[in-house]
């Protein structure tokens, strides 16, 4: 089974545990500035939205890379950047329509989510299940279940 990160912004509280887990896993420090997943706060609306790479199958970043530094990990489905090969040209950061590939000035390479090799630290750290790691073929299942519950006419009539 291939799995994907599933994000439910309604459950997010903006605590940044995911950003700390990500930066610690990948950089060895607690540093939201170096996290591959970001939580955006829309203060006036009272909303928090975690956002990261969705691992496109035909990934723009992979296609744009002139040195083939981005390759799919067939075990996890993640598009992974090879630090040895990346030359820091940043073309992938332009190609990605979602902005989820970013340059790291400390290393001169780009960084993006690699699903931590199949055990994403952000999902483990999330205290509210706003970020979960689920069957890729059923990312919408929980949302369907929630909406299904709301269309139960019999229950509405009874209450």
């Amino acid at each position: 089974m291939q799995r994907s990160l599933s994000i439910d912004p309604d459950k997010c509280t903006g605590c940044l545990q995911c950003e700390m887990a990500c930066s610690f896993e990948n950089e060895g420090v607690f540093n939201p500035a170096k996290s591959r997943i970001k939580v955006f706060t829309f203060h006036e609306e009272g909303r928090f939205v975690p956002y990261t790479c969705t691992q496109c199958d035909e990934a723009w970043c992979m296609q744009a890379c002139p040195v083939d530094a981005i390759k799919m990990n067939f075990q996890t489905g993640a598009m992974e950047v090879s630090e040895q090969v990346c030359v820091g040209c940043k073309v992938c950061t332009i190609a990605c329509p979602f902005g989820t590939v970013n340059y790291n000035r400390d290393t001169g390479k780009v960084i993006k989510c690699d699903l931590c090799g199949g055990d994403p630290a952000c999902a483990t750290a999330c205290p509210t299940q706003a970020i979960t790691y689920v069957d890729s073929d059923a990312t919408g299942l929980e949302k369907m279940r929630a909406w299904a519950g709301k269309t139960d006419n019999a229950q509405h009539a009874a209450s």
């Binding site: 509280t13 605590c15 009272g46």
Partner: peptide, 19 residues
Amino acid sequence: LTTNAACFGCTIACGRIST
């Protein structure tokens, strides 16, 4: 109450966001 909200690193999230 619109939602609850957390401070940095907090897994309790007691903060209130209101209108």
